[in-house]
Design a protein around this nucleic acid. Sequence first.
DNA 1: AAGATTTGTTCGTCAAACCGAACGATAGGC
DNA 2: GCCTATCGTTCGGTTTGACGAACAAATCTT
Lengths: 204, 204
Amino acid sequence: MTAGPPPAGLPDQPPGTLQTPAAPGVVPRIAASLRRERDRSGISLTELARRAGIAKSTLSQLESGAGNPSVETLWALAVALEVPISRLIEPPRPNVQVIRAGDGLVLQSERASYAATLLASCPPGARRDIFRLLVQPGEARVSEPHNPGTTEHIVLSTGRARVGPATEPVELRAGDYATYPGDAPHVFEALEPDTTGVIIMEHI
Amino acid sequence: MTAGPPPAGLPDQPPGTLQTPAAPGVVPRIAASLRRERDRSGISLTELARRAGIAKSTLSQLESGAGNPSVETLWALAVALEVPISRLIEPPRPNVQVIRAGDGLVLQSERASYAATLLASCPPGARRDIFRLLVQPGEARVSEPHNPGTTEHIVLSTGRARVGPATEPVELRAGDYATYPGDAPHVFEALEPDTTGVIIMEHI
DNA sequence: AAGATTTGTTCGTCAAACCGAACGATAGGC
DNA sequence: GCCTATCGTTCGGTTTGACGAACAAATCTT
């Protein structure tokens, strides 16, 4: 996105994520994230600090919102918590799903040759969408990049297809599996009639 | 990727037991990322520092590898560069990864009639495993409950199967999708030869 | 009930992240 | 030629993040 002109100044939004009117500092979010993830793993503050190799006093202050940790500190915490660091920094993934909730919703392409059925939309807590694909040979379908951090997984059920990053697609046959970044342009082109598959879109 | 991808933001360390005295790798990666992204956007160091609202001396040292910036600093830079912050911190994710039908780590059941191939093991941060299934008719396979909170999703590719909670399985045909709790006993029984499918095990 | 652990917090110190200014270097403009 | 502008780097000074120790409160032992 953003071929947009660099509007002289204004340090505004988190890139690639949504905006919140009153730009909330990064710090309070990190504080909340640390709390949340630590609670989730059921581990104590002392123990987490020990595993991360940082002083518990530091962690205490970070969780209490006084902070602004260095990347190394935050990285160590992310490792110890076994979460990607982005989950500590970036705002909780907004529901910017292209698809409205509802079962069996079919996303018809402009061309009728491409049909994606939403099987399980991303519920709160999970971070993935699951689609069933049914595609006919023809022009390759080029997908625009999704949210940053998105990863796509494809398992081809039947048929043959050229799949992957627009720059380096690979050919898949029935049973083959491929994964690639979903936040870069990518393609899906059926090479046989009634090519079917499953796509898991994972939002890290 | 038979061994899980380390992509989601953690270094190559075994989750669970780790002592990270110093986080090696993070700072140089940030240095490289900053250079790269700034070059890509074609703006000067001075200008970037101005837009990010930080001293150019700071940015200079960061790009030269001396550093360990605070998150706020790094965030400001990510905003100014119009990239998600993860692009500055995390190692570039690998592009396409393919597991051909027949390849991959196969989890053989006691009975040879059930074969599950691990396609994408749950990387730290993500919370799902993806399997390819190839099952022959015969005795139903009963899975013991997994971790609490686990949800299973199944998309049947070919064949026919009885799937679901042990108490109330349903019959699926090619293309059908089902989801059910994975933390309760559940079954999978192929009703036709060479029944194939995809299982997503989601660990909330 | 008293002692022993473990919980999370607060305080003083040190190292370093950040800043502003000054620096030599390179590239136009008169 | 010289002057000016911008490039990126380097040098003191200030701010502050991270550490270790000491702290009170809760929990487990004995």
